[in-house]
Structure formats: structure tokens, C-alpha cells
Amino acid sequence: MSDELLYLYAIADAAASGAIVAARLTGIDGGRVAPVVEGRLLGATSVVPASEYDEAPLNEHLQDLDWLAPRAAAHQDVNGRLLEITGGIVPLAFGAIYRGPEGVRTLLEARATDFRERLADLDGRAEWIVSVERADDVPAAQSEALRQLEAEIADAPPGRAFLLGKRREDVLREERQLSDAVIAVEALEALEAGAERVYRETLIDDAALAAVARFSVLVDRSHEAALRDVVRGIERAASVRGYRIRLSGPWPAYRFGGLSLEGTLAG
């Protein structure tokens, strides 16, 4: 058994093979990125040591963030460069590893039609992440119900003030949940009007986290300025209600490259 394995970053059109070789990209652990061509597709790969990347050590390493962090960054660096060089890739998730080029060719051949359709779908486009977050430094708008409760609390004897205080907490929480839901829907509608595809990501259910909603958005590279305008519009409406917006990109299509071709909306 060989002591070297092949790490697979992404699938691209075979026509980009020469450009990828010419770019002399450095991959994970310093390996040179090389295309493995099969038919009209290529897999962008680099050699990694079996001692680190065979199934058992890899599964162990995946739980070690100190090990994972620089390699995840290298994976993304390669895919970011490949996106610029080729104009469109199907990026793979971290950790697609093969014994050698034959395994990559088998994958490319077996899923050729699917990969070609995905590439056509992603060509000339990039993925952006739009996050709606609660801004701690901006107080949420005070409702009439809350103002009344606070006035009552100010005038009430201690026992009743305590109960009203509890009530106030409940109302605050309910109003915040409603406000979060409304802003998320407004952002979704604005993005759907301005982007080619939108996917609402599932969030970790944790009240302490600032994120209220997160969207993956696919846009043509020529429409990125328009996306920024849409996001600025969302922020104008959101900031007065105690939210801020983060925009991150351009990413290779990690989300949309992996979705079924029909499925554009979920979550």
C-alpha cells in the first residue's frame, strides 16, 4: 500500500487543466495542486501523506481544531484560487481522499453528467453568505405594551412589581422572537428578488448567539455590486430595529454545489 494519498479539492471543466498547472497552486501540507483529467472533467488534487490522511488518523484529526484549522484554510485557499482561474468549480467538502488518480477518475466518470450539470449551473457565479445578527449596541424598539408594563412596575408595590417584572421578561422575549422572525422573512424576500438562488441555513438553536438568520446566496460575478446594494437596503431597514448585517464572499459554491439541482430553498 502506498504511503501517499490524493486529496481532492474540487471538480472543474477539463479545459482549465493547463491554467491550473500554470498557476502552480500550493495545497494542503504544501503539496502541489495537480489536475486529474477524465473525459471533459478534472479533479483538482494534491498528494498528502497516508500517515495523516488515511481513514483512522483523519477521523481522529478532524476533532482536533489545531490540526484542522490551517488545513481547512488551505482547502479554501485552493478552491478560492480555482474559482478565479476556472470561473466555476464544484467544491468538495473537506476530506475527500483517494488512494490515487484512478479513484478520482472513477468518481468523475461515474458522476460525469451530474457534475457537468452542476458546473453549468455554477459557471460565472459565486456564493455569498448574508447573516442577520442582533446588534448588542443598538437597543431594540420599545413596544407600547412594554412601555405600559414599565410604567405599572414603577408605580406598583414590591410584590406586584416582581410579578410584573416577570411578565415584562416574557413579553420582551416574545417580542424579540417575533421581531427576529419578521426581519428574517424580510431579508429572505429582498435577497430572493436580488439573487439567482437563495438558501436559508439552519442555525444552531441558541438564544445567546447573535445570529437571527443566515442565507447562502448565489450570484453572477457581474451582479456582485447589485447584491451589495440589496444587502445595504436590508441593513437600512434592519439597523433601526436593532440588527446588523454581515456579508461574506465571494466563496466557491460549497452550498449550491452540493444541493440537488432542483432544490433552491429550504430551512
Binding site: L62, A93, V231, R244, G249, Y254, G258
Partner: peptide, 25 residues
């Protein structure tokens, strides 16, 4: 609006994008 490139991404963001997404098998 705060705008970030993938190079600015936090580790959690990066790992979420790279390990939770991508072509899913």
C-alpha cells in the same frame, strides 16, 4: 454593513462552510 472575504472568515465559519457543505454524499 460589514463585508468580509473568505480570507477573513472565522474558523467556525470556515469549518461550517467546508465541512458541513460542499458536495454531500
Amino acid at each position: 454593513m460589514k463585508e468580509f472575504t473568505p480570507a477573513d472568515a472565522s474558523l467556525l465559519e470556515l469549518v461550517d462552510r467546508l465541512l458541513h457543505k460542499g458536495v454531500v454524499l
